[in-house]
Amino acid sequence: MRTNLSKYGVAGPVVAGVIVAAIALWLRHGLLEAGLLPRDCTLADAPAAACAFKTALVQSFLDQRLGWVSLVAGGLAFMLSCHRLAWAGWLTGVAGLVLYSYDPAAIGTLLALLVLVRAHDEDGQGKREPGEQPADRLRVGGLG
């Protein structure tokens, strides 16, 4: 059985997610944990640009900030069906999963992904009739 990811609108988010995950992994393991950034930025001879970058990177995941941004963006995208908020929730969530913010980022990422995949179906790719409800395709009758 062959899966066609582009048919279901999953290819774009998956490719973007893999790219963001690769960048986040490189930032985490290639720069931060490998010791390529200055360890002590309070020294007078510490490079200012590298210290500013390290401070911004650490502040992004301190107190799970990336995860909370993903959760808020994904939750709002789910409630409002906003495609742009869904992309923000998805990409910050993937980065948050790699950069130590996995608790809230996991929920925000899933909510955002639901909107991204669903939005593709509503753009004319699915076979929905006007006014049709999601349960109508299940062919489930009433309980009474």
Rank of each mutant, 00 (worst) to 15 (best):
A21Y: 11
K54I: 05
L143R: 06
L91V: 02
T92K: 06
C82Y: 03
L57P: 04
E132H: 01
P130M: 07
R28W: 04
L138H: 00
A44K: 11
C51T: 09
P130V: 10
G131M: 01
L57Y: 14
M79C: 04
G131T: 11
G144E: 03
V72Q: 05
E33W: 12
G67D: 10
Y102I: 02
Q133D: 12
S70F: 07
D103A: 08
G126F: 01
A73G: 08
Q59Y: 13
V98F: 10
A73Y: 09
Q125H: 15
M79F: 08
K54C: 02
G96Q: 06
M1Q: 13
A21D: 07
V14D: 00
G89E: 02
V10G: 01
D121G: 14
V10C: 06
A95R: 07
D40G: 06
Y8K: 11
R2Q: 14
P13M: 05
P47L: 08
P104H: 03
R137L: 12
R137S: 12
L116S: 05
R28I: 00
A34V: 08
A48N: 01
L25T: 03
A22T: 12
R118F: 02
R139N: 11
L36D: 07
A106P: 02
L37C: 04
F61H: 13
A88I: 15
G124D: 14
H120A: 07
H83V: 13
D136Q: 10
H120Q: 06
A86G: 02
L113N: 13
D121R: 11
T3M: 07
V69K: 01
E122F: 11
A52M: 13
D121L: 14
A56Q: 13
G17Q: 08
I23K: 02
L5C: 02
Q59H: 14
G96F: 02
A88P: 00
L57S: 04
V10E: 00
R128A: 15
L5H: 05
V58C: 03
E122N: 08
A22I: 12
D123M: 08
S60D: 03
G74V: 12
T92G: 06
V115G: 09
D63P: 01
G142F: 05
G30S: 06
A11F: 11
P47F: 07
A21T: 14
K127M: 13
G144S: 10
G108Q: 11
K127N: 14
P134D: 01
I19L: 15
F53G: 00
V20I: 15
L116F: 08
D103R: 07
R137A: 13
A22Q: 10
G141H: 07
